[in-house]
Amino acid sequence: MIEVSGLTKRYGGFTAVRDLSLAVQPGEVLGLVGPNGAGKTSTLRCLAGIIPATAGNVRIAGHDISTDPVAAKRALAFFPDEPRLFDYLTIRQHLNFVARIYGVADHEAIAGPLLEELEIADKADQLPGELSRGMKQKLAIACGLLHRPSVMFFDEPLTGLDPLGIRRMKDSILKRAREGAAVILSSHLLHLLQEVCSHVLILKKGEKIAHGTLPEISAQFANGESIVSLEEIFIRATGGSEH
């Protein structure tokens, strides 16, 4: 569903992502972890077609993001760490707008349950300025889920959410994965990754240093210990510093 080979992203002389290859199948949730500046956001933005890759291939639901971006984007949803909303559109109008962009014919039938699930149905006629940070995040998620994407990218999805919001977000991600979506999420919250992700990819200075299921990664950095937390794995894998 998500196939990446040899992805490289350079900004001038600086290489943010170097020769990254990965694949995420339907139902899998890949956690992208790494220290600050490891290239997580650059990777996600390349995969979502927001920024062009310097080299490599990215296929989303079978469509090459560089040669057939419209078809690829029709299948994906990107959720940035900060919800990007239009100040003048209410929740309902946001969904109306997105439905037209993606050509979601039965959007009202989908939007109702979606807003109920995200617990913002009673705020449907409010502007983003009247919503809390968590509500805005939920609206951004509703907009992303409206066209039933088969591929989802989450960049720090729990930023600014309260404990209940975190629980709902985790449930929402798992629900979509169970329904067959391929998900990649980046986060510094390792307990989230431990609970939600089926696979983990550790990046450092733009390079993949570990990739596999949680048991595989644990085994790789266990050093003979039987139970190792993801936090410990992360510290051992990255050497405990950004550099």
Binding site: F86, N96, F97, A99, R100, G103
Partner: peptide, 21 residues
């Protein structure tokens, strides 16, 4: 908040969604 300037259906040219917005 105020109502949209015209009815925006789910299908049709996506450019009109930007005009509406």
């Amino acid at each position: 908040a105020r109502p949209g300037p015209f009815y925006l259906g789910s299908s049709g040219r996506p450019e009109l969604a930007f005009l509406w917005k």
